[in-house]
Simulated scan of single mutants.
Amino acid sequence: MNVYPIQWKRVTTGIVLTSMLTVLAACGGNNGAENGNKSESGAAPSPTAAPTTETVATEEPAVEDAGKLVVYLNDFDAIIADMFKEATGYDVELVTGNGAEIMSRIEAEKGNPHWDIVWADMMPSIHGLGLQGQLLEGWEPENLSQVAEDFKAYIPENKTYFPTGAHASGIIVYNKNFYTEETAPKTWADFAKAEYKDQIATADPAIAAPAYPFVAALFDKAGGVEEGKAFFDSWFNNGLRVYPKNPQIVQALSGGEVKLAALQESNAYSMVNNNEPIGIIWPEEGAPASVRVAAIQKNTKNPNAAKAFIEFLLDAKTQQQLVDEGEEAYFDPAAQGVTARPDRAANAKLIAADAAWASQHEAEIKQWFADKAVK
């Protein structure tokens, strides 16, 4: 990815009124001259013209924020609150949870939203919020032009959400006590091979935020809903275990409960960095991507802070700090000019399902997966 540096700039919304009506005349309109209000040339100043109808119609009062910005966030990278406060002065309240928790909260608050921003690894679900009319449309961040071209493809036409990065929602990991790089699976189809029976695992797409993008990408790659069901049936028939979230898969791999898994990449690299006997394989066909996106609630009471937050997330310096210090440090940054983790595979290839398609079939696929899963 070609990358170039950018600078972040705080945005303040609202229009400053630039014309004022000065009343210079009373009754006869020459009061200024009678009182000796002369210009240096000795002539009385001309009365200021009243605003035209057109001017009045386009003038708007500045919008003020109502209070603290509330951000609904996946349960990691809580450092963003202090980062944003330091950079802008805006206070942030974080409400964190897994994908299911965040979406359940948003649904429960549909008639009275308590959130201003949702920033999460679930582009299809957030795309669905846009279709429901819950997201601000049509606003464009000032630094949007600095987003890498391949990430611009993820931005919907009505600009209801913006990508901040993407990571592998699943890469192939294996326990080195049981497999070598040569004997471990190389492709996603390999998970259906008899030699791996009862040894494979993945996260639940109805609970873990990155898990549905993982499943949706492989459904899409297979050719559609029915083809995707057939593909995952081959895994279920081979003894696939489904865990609620990726940290539970980490525990299962560490304890030998499973020996192979489709594991979210930050969790996988964390295991390696913690000296766990884990090997990582990036399939040549690509690893399903979880695109992390941010969106503004349509009726936010904090529009200035909300828009500043989106621009802050898109800034190269912000994303570099998340790579260097964040919990979700292994990802492809959306901003140009960011250096990814040096130990991240150079051949990392990500594939993603179309957001509209994945959103359209989300409920159906999740329900089918839940019916099939052996937990």
Rank of each mutant, 00 (worst) to 15 (best):
A222K: 09
A222Y: 09
G223V: 06
V225R: 05
E226G: 11
E226Y: 05
E227P: 11
G228K: 05
A230Y: 10
F231K: 09
F232P: 00
S234H: 12
S234F: 09
W235A: 03
N238K: 06
L240V: 03
Y243V: 03
P244D: 14
K245S: 15
N246C: 11
P247E: 02
I249A: 08
V250S: 15
V250L: 10
A252W: 03
A252C: 02
L253T: 00
L253E: 06
G256H: 12
E257S: 14
E257V: 07
K259Y: 07
K259P: 07
L260P: 14
Q264R: 12
E265M: 09
S266V: 08
S266F: 09
A268S: 13
A268T: 08
Y269W: 11
S270D: 15
M271N: 03
M271P: 07
M271V: 00
M271R: 05
N273F: 10
N273G: 12
N273C: 04
N274Y: 13
N274K: 11
N275M: 10
E276F: 12
P277K: 04
I278W: 13
G279V: 10
I281R: 09
I281K: 13
W282D: 14
E284N: 14
E285G: 04
E285K: 07
A287L: 00
P288Q: 05
A289G: 13
S290N: 03
V291R: 02
R292F: 14
R292N: 15
A294I: 15
K298C: 06
N299P: 05
K301V: 04
N302V: 02
N302R: 02
N304R: 04
A305H: 10
A306P: 07
A308K: 05
F309G: 04
E311R: 09
L314G: 14
